[in-house]
């Protein structure tokens, strides 16, 4: 059983890796087009230097560390599952997938994870340039924080992937799943902390946002990497992320079952 699962995982990863290599140029373009955190970095650094060196406790160097980490995290959590599911349903390609004895989500997950692997080289290059462009930028204090961040960003990717996947499952009922998923990018700017560090938000807004999954996709993993959270704080972030993951897994299961019933009733 486990042997079979491991084999399936291995084959899916190898094949998707070959597939993503074909699209390496596209991947680089997508990486470079996600430049909002870097634009915000410039704006906030400008603001800090014009108001005497710091804004709300942030200096040019801490802003750089924050927004570079936001950029990195955004790169790690990119998900297009909604777009893909929408395409599968629209082009009638879901039927062949449904005939296989493997839930299509695993295939999609393998595609997403392998794509991330190809992003690593450019990620490192841009972080390297960014850190050296602004003097005194310290992205992370030590290796343990990097390791904690790795787990955190893995969970964050899981949340974003499942959000996108669940939205994609709406394709069973509407052709607007991709458009609905794009709403994530619309709200992500201010809900995940890509526009500004959440600590600069008014407390009342902050109190509301913290109850949503969005800060746990970008803001909190960034705090872990930047070294603003220690042991207990990191564990709390992981716990909340795990909670959101379980909720989304339940929703995904429910949507999948209902979606299949709908697909079976109406077809495509």
């Amino acid at each position: 059983m486990i042997r079979h699962a491991a084999r399936k995982a291995r084959v899916l990863f190898t094949v998707w890796f070959a597939h993503m290599l074909v699209y390496r140029a596209e991947i680089i373009i997508w990486m470079l087009s996600g430049s909002i955190p870097l634009i915000m970095m410039a704006v906030w650094i400008g603001k800090a230097s014009s108001s005497g060196g710091s804004v709300g406790g942030f200096t040019a160097a801490t802003f750089a560390a924050y927004f570079l980490a936001v950029w990195l995290t955004n790169q790690c959590i990119v998900a297009w599952a909604a777009w893909e599911l929408d395409r599968l349903v629209r082009e009638g390609l879901l039927s062949p997938r449904l005939l296989r004895p493997l839930d299509p989500i695993w295939n999609e997950l393998a595609a997403h994870v392998t794509e991330k692997v190809l992003r690593i080289p450019l990620m490192i290059a841009i972080l390297f340039v960014g850190v050296h462009l602004v003097p005194g930028t310290q992205l992370t204090p030590d290796i343990p924080h990097v390791l904690a961040y790795t787990v955190c960003v893995g969970f964050a990717f899981g949340i974003r992937f499942l959000l996108s996947y669940c939205t994609g499952l709406l394709s069973f009922w509407t052709t607007q799943a991709t458009a609905i998923d794009e709403l994530y990018y619309v709200v992500a700017g201010f809900l995940t902390g890509a526009f500004a560090p959440l600590s600069l938000y008014p407390a009342s807004v902050r109190a509301v946002i913290d109850w949503l999954p969005f800060p746990y996709i970008v803001y909190y993993p960034v705090q872990v990497l930047n070294g603003n959270l220690a042991g207990g704080g990191i564990l709390r972030v992981l716990a909340v992320q795990a909670l959101w993951l379980s909720v989304l897994i339940l929703i995904r299961g429910m949507l999948w079952r209902r979606g299949l019933r709908q697909y079976g009733a109406v077809g495509a």
Binding site: V43, W44, K47, V186, V187, G189, F190, F195, A196, L200, Y201, V205
Partner: peptide, 10 residues
């Protein structure tokens, strides 16, 4: 709305 909010923070 998001853009305005971001601006207000700035």
């Amino acid at each position: 709305g998001g853009a305005l909010f971001g601006l207000s923070i700035l």
